[in-house]
Design a protein around this nucleic acid. Structure first.
Ligand SMILES: [Mn+2]
Ligand SMILES: [Mn+2]
Ligand SMILES: [Zn+2]
Ligand SMILES: [Zn+2]
Lengths: 148, 148
DNA sequence: TACAAATTTAGAATAATTATAAATAAAAGC
DNA sequence: GCTTTTATTTATAATTATTCTAAATTTGTA
């Protein structure tokens, strides 16, 4: 639920064309809270772009990540990389059982960027603040399985 | 540079045998600051265990991660997963060009665990606090390349 | 020593991601 | 508008990190 035009304009500024496929990918990323994978984006857009290629999805995601407009969160129990178009500092929380990722607001993370830049001299491109564990529902399932 | 026996005892407590291969993997993880990948561990131990299998390395790492004794940081510019045996709260900082990961101490991250647990009801297993960008050396190289 | 369970190993299989080259679309020049 | 150039998309093949499998080995127990 960030701004779609933030993503498309960052592509534009980088000298890339704003094609219908790229716009669709950016909109989906910006309007989603589910931290989607390339495959999820592909499946969601297939109905609208019948000839869409997975390569296009991967290429667009790579471009957005390189530009710092999208963060790469990595795996979440599955073996596929999840992306986050919300680059405002926050904590991501993944359930390694159902592979869902939710957002947790936190005052503490807002300070990290400046702190890290000052301490390291690195040029920061992105943040990956992802805690992982078991969501309440999956905890129940685990207990039920253990009972048998 | 955490305690090797923390890792081996956590395997033991889980009812797993403490084999020479597992001890070696735990020691390497605990004594390293370089956030190694499975392949790096395998290569380092090959001289000592000539018949070591990559599967053993992956299995041991998976066990340690499931037990919460090791954190999975994910990719760092390469396409291989990096691990961190230091589960004390801290910021990891990766250079996506040379794929090295360093540690940054931070008071702020120490609060996150409690905050997240309280806010979510999740059972936390691990933390993945990894910022990524370009280290000072790789920034120089980038500029040199851009000049040509 | 003998037995059972766990582990390691080598190699095959899987599947996410990347590379390639042809087809298409967009921009630029005239 | 037409032609030329350049960027992008697409379909498909290739790559490769990781997982699976089944046989061999080790370990713990008695
Ligand atoms: Mn998020
Ligand atoms: Mn670390
Ligand atoms: Zn869950
Ligand atoms: Zn570097």
């Amino acid at each position: 639920m960030s701004n779609p035009s933030t993503l498309t304009t960052s592509l534009q500024k980088a000298g890339m064309r704003v094609t219908p496929q790229r716009v669709a990918i950016c909109e989906l990323l910006a309007n989603s809270h589910e931290h989607p994978t390339a495959a999820m984006i592909y499946e969601e857009l297939k109905p609208r772009f019948s000839s869409l290629s997975l390569a296009t999805v991967y290429n667009t995601l790579d471009a957005l990540v390189t530009l710092g407009a999208v963060n790469v969160l990595g795996h979440a129990g599955d073996d596929t990389v999840h992306y986050d178009a919300d680059t405002e500092p926050h904590v991501n929380l993944a359930c390694i059982s159902c592979s869902r990722i939710i957002d947790i607001p936190s005052e503490h993370v807002t300070h990290l960027d400046a702190e890290i830049t000052a301490a390291s001299g690195y040029k920061l491109l992105g943040a990956r603040v992802l805690y992982y564990g078991l969501c309440p529902e999956c905890q129940k399932k685990q207990i039920e399985i253990t009972r048998n």
